[in-house]
Structure formats: structure tokens, C-alpha cells
């Protein structure tokens, strides 16, 4: 329970900060103020300023938007494709379709999202969309495997047999009896993939495969800070903490949700 409250609070802080940034930020992140560059934290600039004199606090608020948006859309892609694939594979267990879906999953697992991002970027050039697609594609097999595994054990339950005796087909059974009993598992895994998505987005932006300037993003801020790290380490400190605490908050919320819903759930990390 403590996990859940702490995790949700942390997550809520960042989500609210991201939402607020649409309406208001302490400073405009598009305005450069070279005179005030690389300031350490003061009452005016809570987290200091970067090498262009931009307010780091404001940039973290706006950067949260990118991180959260990329990670959420990637989870939606992963769930939206992975769950139906997993349900289909389980409903047609042992068929050619099942085999093809599972082999496809194995194949995607051989392409870490970074490699997918590299391939896409090589063709289309870098953008935040690339990051979403790359992370989203990698999420598909995670959800597909999890869904298939759990659905297979549900398919052996007597209540599924009873539904078949009542003449219900595979689609209807999957929707009525399988999916609702997977919901807990999917919610918990969803939070974990969300947090992994934030980490992956940061890494991709850091190496220049994600969101492009001037869109602020936490990974991009760290890349910029790196060249100045000996001079102004605080510029690297705050975006890093932003990532750390968002991911920590989501993970703890995920653990908390699992403990509340069903302590025996098994999820993949």
C-alpha cells in the first residue's frame, strides 16, 4: 500500500507538471538568454540554466510531455497489437497461426528497440515518431507473450469449457472470459512497460535518435549537458533525477497495483 501511494504521488507530480507546461512554465523554453547561461540554482532559476541560458526547471516540465507521450503511445501500440495477437495465438494453440505469431515475437526480441530505431532513422531521419515506433514495436512481443501464456492457462479452465458447451465461439470466449481475467496482469505489465518506455525514450534522445531540437526532452538535455559536465555538472543532474524519479514512481505504482489486485501475479521484467 505504501508502495502504491508513494509511486502514484511521484507519477502524479510529473504528469501534473507535464500538463501544466501546456498552460504555464516559469520561463519560455524557446527564448535564449545567453547572458544568464549555466547559472547554478537560484531563487529565480530553481534548477539553474543551461548553456543557452534557458531555465532548466521549465525545460524539465516541457520535457516530461515528450517522455510521457512517447512512452504512453508506445504502450498503447504494444497492447493494441500484442494483446489481440496473444489472444489469437492462445485460442488457436498449436496451429500454424500460433507458430507464426510466436516465431514473429521471437524475431522481434532479437531486435532491441535501439536497433529498430537505428534502422528507421537510417531511412527516414530522426524524430520523436521514430522513438514511439521503435519502443512500440518492441512492446508488442512483451504483451503478446504475456497474454498468450496467461490465456493458455485460462483456456484450460472449466468455465471456458462450459462456455463452449453453451455454443460460444473463440472470439466471444476471448472477450467474455479470457480478457477480463487478464486485465490485472495487463495493467501491471502496462505500468512496467510505461516506465521502460520512459527510459528507452531518454536513451534514444540522448544518442540523437529521438525528439529533435527545439523540442525539449530529458535525454536531449543530458546529451547537451555532457560536453559541459566538467564545467557545470548541475545541468546534467536535474534531467537525470527527473527520469529516475518518474521511472521509480511508475515501478512502485506497478508493484503497488499488483499487490492490491493480486499478489501472485507474475509479470515479465
Amino acid at each position: 500500500m505504501r508502495n502504491l501511494i508513494f509511486g502514484l504521488t511521484l507519477t502524479a507530480i510529473f504528469a501534473l507538471g507535464a500538463a501544466l507546461s501546456f498552460l504555464w512554465t516559469p520561463y519560455d523554453v524557446t527564448v535564449l538568454d545567453i547572458a544568464n547561461k549555466l547559472k547554478t540554482p537560484t531563487a529565480d532559476h530553481w534548477f539553474g540554466t543551461d548553456h543557452f541560458g534557458r531555465d532548466i526547471f521549465s525545460m524539465i516540465m516541457v520535457g516530461a510531455r515528450t517522455s510521457i507521450a512517447v512512452a504512453i503511445v508506445a504502450v498503447v501500440i504494444g497492447m493494441g497489437l500484442g494483446v489481440p495477437l496473444g489472444l489469437t495465438a492462445a485460442a488457436r494453440k498449436g496451429s500454424l497461426l500460433d507458430e507464426v505469431i510466436m516465431r514473429g515475437n521471437d524475431l522481434i526480441f532479437a531486435f532491441p528497440s535501439l536497433l529498430i530505431a537505428i534502422l528507421i532513422t537510417a531511412i527516414f531521419g530522426p524524430s520523436a515518431i521514430n522513438a514511439i515506433i521503435a519502443i512500440g514495436i518492441f512492446n508488442i512481443p512483451v504483451f503478446a507473450r504475456l497474454t498468450r501464456g496467461a490465456a493458455l492457462s485460462l483456456w484450460t479452465r472449466d468455465y471456458v469449457l462450459a462456455a463452449r458447451v453453451a455454443g460460444k465461439g473463440a472470439v466471444r470466449i476471448s472477450a467474455e472470459h479470457i480478457l477480463p481475467n487478464l486485465a490485472n496482469l495487463l495493467i501491471v505489465q502496462g505500468t512496467i512497460q510505461f516506465s521502460l518506455g520512459i527510459l528507452a525514450e531518454a536513451a534514444l534522445s540522448y544518442v540523437g535518435l529521438g525528439a529533435q531540437p527545439p523540442t525539449p526532452s530529458w535525454g536531449r538535455m543530458l546529451a547537451d549537458a555532457q560536453t559541459l559536465i566538467a564545467l557545470a555538472p548541475h545541468v546534467a543532474l536535474f534531467p537525470g533525477f527527473a527520469i529516475l524519479f518518474t521511472v521509480l514512481g511508475l515501478n512502485m505504482a506497478g508493484d503497488g497495483i499488483r499487490d492490491v489486485l493480486d499478489p501472485k501475479l507474475r509479470v515479465e521484467r
Partner: peptide, 9 residues
Amino acid sequence: AVPNFWFAM
């Protein structure tokens, strides 16, 4: 939760 490249920095 730590991003490894930040930890490296």
C-alpha cells in the same frame, strides 16, 4: 530506475 548513461556521466 536509473538511466545507465546518466549514471555513467
